[in-house]
Nucleic acid binder design. Structure first.
Length: 576
DNA sequence: GCCGTTTTCGGCCCGACTGTTTTCAGTCG
């Protein structure tokens, strides 16, 4: 049983307990444990074997015992008993927006219904509207909620969210009286998928913003419209929410709207411990005096904290570091000087080596590696060794053309074949400037086999980087079922770097594994996997993942000087 | 149910918006 499955069980327990009417703090404890398991870079089963389950944040005696029972027997007595009391199908109703635990309990107990179909029927028949505290609008809210639930996917992939956020910011920013616009929420925190889109607007005239936002083209449903906060659903199923605050309060408001919820709870607790009450409007002293902050920096400083980068705001230890003035200097987009996975027309790319190199130069890069596919990946036009010799000539010509502007590396994305062997012989690999090894095929192999394939590649002294390690595609394809802990341990031992593939379709490694890699001393390479100049824009997404993993420039080989990077590549070769 | 630079027991964040209400409960973020 993996972390995701354990987390799902604890979230289910939380849902059922909430409907049952359990005190809120018990529910919060289960949700915290679930959240914590999802963010963990190692499997809980490994902690379990070591007897260190309670080192997982939010896991105390009771939940550790439940994890133990689940891993030992595969089931949980507590949950089975709970299901006899509260039908598990009611937990599905929680996904309907506008329907919370209290109303679910009311409907279930009053009408004796438990399924989605029965709920729909009851809402249509007027039975829901007849309940105490409910009315026609409540029934309609439920029906609308069910309707949009059927249209929505769980979370929005970044490649879908980014253009929408950009459009919204441009439109809102051009309204009269608007001083500033900023994305907030999970998008600003750099998550690889986002839920609803959150946008914060600074203006003294909120009604203009609210009116414009709720009447945008493409809005299919206004979920709420108030004086300073509104939310809408677009016909695409995407939901967005906009807050408006005056510029003088923009700092507190942006901090609040950025979250995460867990980070904000920690912030408020800290404020309380210092005799203040923190809200999205102000920091209020016990005597009622309010302090306003135009910037987040001022707010964090007022609480005795360093400004915490949004990507770190998950309550995973950043508060203590910020209080001690010891936040790491995270890697930034401006630190990136090399992109080490790119494709040209020599395989499945759309542009020539010279065109790509010039595009990279225009972005300020100093090193670009061409990692065209290897021969066995036929659909991509993978290169034979003979064609590599021709490509080498073109690279030399392109290098003469661009001069000192950028260094072009002759590399390859070598296929790790189904049997674990690499697609080129070692003596050829040794001649390349850089070798990136990746899985593209037979991703569904059993865990042991696919893990062994990757480790075999890691142990090849010619391999410098493992590309997009799990092979996942967002949102459609789960990655290979890897024993990531074993993979990262092997990489630490051999000195191979692991890639954070910056493509918003991949973002692989994800942040939790990248963070675990850093703990083990594994170097990271952030690459765009570009097939055209436009793809190079994705670097910022990869950097966001790296920041979420708390990586510094030293951890990321793409930030290193030419000398250091080339020496590192050479050392790996000479260790051959 | 978890947790500890106020605490091993007593806390655990705060406000906007909506609908069904005559002053508030539920939901959401």
């Amino acid at each position: 049983m993996n972390n995701q499955q354990l987390a799902a069980i604890f979230n289910l327990i939380a849902d059922l307990l909430e409907i049952k009417g359990e005190v809120i703090y018990v529910i919060l404890a289960y949700r915290k444990a679930a959240e914590s398991l999802q963010n963990l870079g190692r499997e809980a089963s490994e902690y379990w074997k070591e007897g260190t389950l309670r080192e997982i944040p939010g896991v105390g005696k009771a939940i550790a015992d439940k994890i133990d029972e689940l891993l030992t027997t595969g089931s949980l007595r507590f949950l089975e008993d709970l299901k006899k009391e509260i039908p598990a199908s009611l937990a599905e109703w929680r996904q309907i927006s506008g329907l919370g635990p209290k109303k679910i309990a009311l409907i279930w107990k009053s009408l004796g219904i438990t399924t989605m179909e029965e709920l729909k029927q009851a809402a249509q028949d007027g039975k829901v509207a007849g309940l105490p505290g409910m009315g026609e609008k409540s029934a309609k809210l439920i029906l609308d909620g069910m309707e949009s639930l059927s249209r929505r996917s769980d979370r929005l992939p970044l490649w879908k969210a980014a253009p929408v956020v950009e459009d919204l910011c441009n439109i809102l920013g051009s309204l009269p009286g608007v001083a500033t616009v900023s994305p907030a929420g999970s998008y600003r925190r750099g998550r690889s998928t986002v839920g609803d889109l959150d946008i914060l607007v600074a203006s003294e005239n909120p009604s203009v913003v609210m009116d414009a936002f709720t009447s945008l083209a493409g809005v299919s449903r206004v979920l709420g419209k108030g004086a300073t906060k509104s939310s809408v659903e677009f016909s695409s199923g995407v939901r967005a929410q906009v807050w408006v605050h005056p510029p003088a309060k923009f700092g507190t408001a942006l901090q609040y709207a950025t979250g995460s919820k867990e980070h904000n709870v920690a912030m408020r607790q800290l404020a309380l411990s210092k005799g203040f009450s923190l809200s999205e409007h102000s920091l209020m002293g016990q005597d009622g005096t309010e302090h306003f902050f135009a910037t987040e920096q001022d707010l964090y400083a007022a609480l005795g904290l360093q400004w915490v980068p949004p990507e770190m705001r998950e309550d995973l230890g950043e508060m203590a570091l910020a209080a001690a003035g010891k936040l790491p200097r995270l890697v930034e987009l401006a630190d990136i000087r090399a992109d080490l996975q790119n494709h040209s027309t020599w395989s499945d790319g759309e542009m020539s080596i010279l065109e790509m190199a010039r595009a990279a130069m225009a972005r300020g890069l100093k090193v670009i590696a061409f990692t065209d596919h290897s021969q066995s990946l036929g659909v991509t036009g993978g290169l034979t060794i003979e064609r590599h010799a021709e490509q080498q000539k073109e690279i030399e010509a392109a290098q003469r053309e661009v001069g000192d502007g950028i260094r072009i590396l002759h590399a390859a994305e070598v296929e790790i074949k189904a049997d674990g062997e690499l697609d080129y012989p070692d003596d050829f690999l040794a001649t390349l400037d850089l070798v990136l090894a990746s899985l593209h095929t037979s991703l569904r192999q059993p865990r042991d086999k696919v893990t062994a394939r990757l480790i075999n590649a890691i142990n090849n002294p010619n391999v410098d980087i493992i590309g997009h390690p799990t092979g996942r595609k967002i949102p459609d394809r789960e990655g290979a079922d890897l024993d990531m802990e074993a993979v990262l341990q092997a990489a630490a031992k051999s000195g191979v770097a692991m890639e954070i593939n910056a493509s918003p379709y991949r973002l692989d490694l994800d942040d939790k594994y990248a963070r675990r890699a850093k703990e083990l001393g594994v170097k990271i390479s952030i690459n765009t996997d570009s097939h055209s100049a436009k793809d190079m824009e994705a670097m910022s997404f990869g950097v966001a993942i790296a920041k979420r993993a708390w990586l510094t420039p030293q951890d990321v080989i793409n930030t290193w000087s030419d000398e250091k990077l080339l020496a590192w590549l050479k050392d790996k070769k000479s260790a051959n």
